[in-house]
Simulated assay, not measured.
Amino acid sequence: MKVAVMGAGAVGCFYGGMLARAGHDVVLIGRPQHVEAIARDGLRLEAQQFDERIGAPRVTASTEAAAVAGADLVLFCVKSTDTESAGASIKPHLGEHTLVLTLQNGVDNAERLRGVITQDVAAAVVYVATEMAGPGHVRHHGRGELVIEPARASETAARALIAAGVPTEISPNVRGALWAKLIVNCAYNALSAITQLPYGRLVQGAGVSDAMSDIVAECVAVAQADGVTLPPGVDGAVSHIAQTMPGQYSSTAQDLARGKRSEIDHLNGYVVQRGAALGVPTPANRLLQTLVRLIEDKAHAVI
């Protein structure tokens, strides 16, 4: 299978690297510093069980959206803020039968992408702890499961991922799974970003457990008002993250540490937006969204 990764950051490089190790041809589309490093030295995939470099012909890299041409599967891994623009950039180059799999934070990216392209789009829920440790170097801290929405080629993609060592399942309730992941992100991402603490240390702070309970309760209330069927054990899943990913900093924390804009409007901000539309109060989520935005504005202020 030919695979293209659109937005080859930590998540895209991890899953693209795993597929390449299994024998698939993978092109990583990302920022120049990563593309240059991968072209020169190959992709370094530092996982928990191995540390390898994967180069051409299995892994190639490009800065151009046109590199998706000929792909059977596109792993769509851009920030939620860039969904429509990135979708438009790859649209002219997609094959008729290409499956585009959205590996993104948030709950509405697949729907938004379907408004841009005509190919099959399937949402995926991602449970992985990764970071870009340097140009062309992805470090895997834990987990790696995917839950995929049914689509024409979902079973083919799932089989390839499973064979590559990625635990994958196809679920008819991906919307519920996406919301469950959103709730976890709302509980951790902003707090990790504001404090610049990894999950394990974060949850040890005084009052953090109660604050997370408030955040989760608001999210659950909005989801229920929105007709979402949440999978059982959401509270347990929230506490489980700190145990399985104690050294992980949230993606929002990594964005703020680099002075970048985050996806906060698609995480806690999305809960605030839907809560306002449905008449459900969300003061805890609103406060977190506001604080992260203030930190972003401070970093981007012109002095």
Score class of each variant (00 low, 15 high):
167 P>T: 06
161 L>R: 00
162 I>Q: 09
129 A>I: 05
99 L>A: 12
109 N>Q: 13
109 N>M: 10
77 C>H: 05
123 A>F: 12
180 A>Q: 09
143 R>P: 02
108 D>G: 02
128 V>C: 12
175 R>P: 01
149 E>G: 06
126 V>E: 01
94 L>P: 14
128 V>G: 09
126 V>N: 01
110 A>L: 11
160 A>V: 01
179 W>M: 03
133 A>E: 14
94 L>A: 13
98 T>M: 12
133 A>R: 09
100 V>T: 13
180 A>F: 03
96 E>P: 07
136 G>T: 06
134 G>P: 09
165 G>D: 10
98 T>G: 14
162 I>Y: 02
172 P>F: 01
116 V>G: 13
177 A>N: 10
153 A>I: 01
102 T>V: 03
124 A>H: 04
106 G>A: 01
130 T>N: 14
144 G>Q: 00
173 N>S: 04
80 S>P: 05
169 E>H: 04
82 D>Q: 15
95 G>F: 12
95 G>C: 14
159 R>W: 03
98 T>E: 14
163 A>T: 12
139 R>I: 03
87 G>M: 11
145 E>T: 08
142 G>L: 03
99 L>S: 06
134 G>R: 11
93 H>Y: 14
117 I>F: 14
97 H>Y: 06
140 H>E: 02
119 Q>A: 13
88 A>H: 09
82 D>M: 08
165 G>V: 07
104 Q>A: 04
167 P>D: 10
144 G>H: 00
181 K>Q: 02
164 A>N: 10
116 V>D: 13
122 A>S: 15
110 A>R: 04
149 E>Q: 15
108 D>L: 04
85 S>P: 02
77 C>Y: 05
133 A>D: 15
96 E>R: 14
164 A>G: 11
123 A>T: 07
90 I>L: 15
102 T>G: 04
134 G>L: 10
153 A>S: 11
125 V>G: 01
87 G>R: 08
137 H>G: 05
132 M>H: 05
130 T>H: 06
84 E>M: 07
86 A>L: 10
158 A>F: 04
146 L>K: 00
114 R>K: 15
166 V>W: 08
120 D>M: 12
120 D>R: 12
175 R>V: 08
133 A>V: 12
142 G>F: 01
108 D>H: 04
111 E>I: 08
139 R>F: 04
123 A>Y: 11
174 V>Q: 05
91 K>Q: 15
151 A>K: 11
135 P>T: 09
161 L>Y: 01
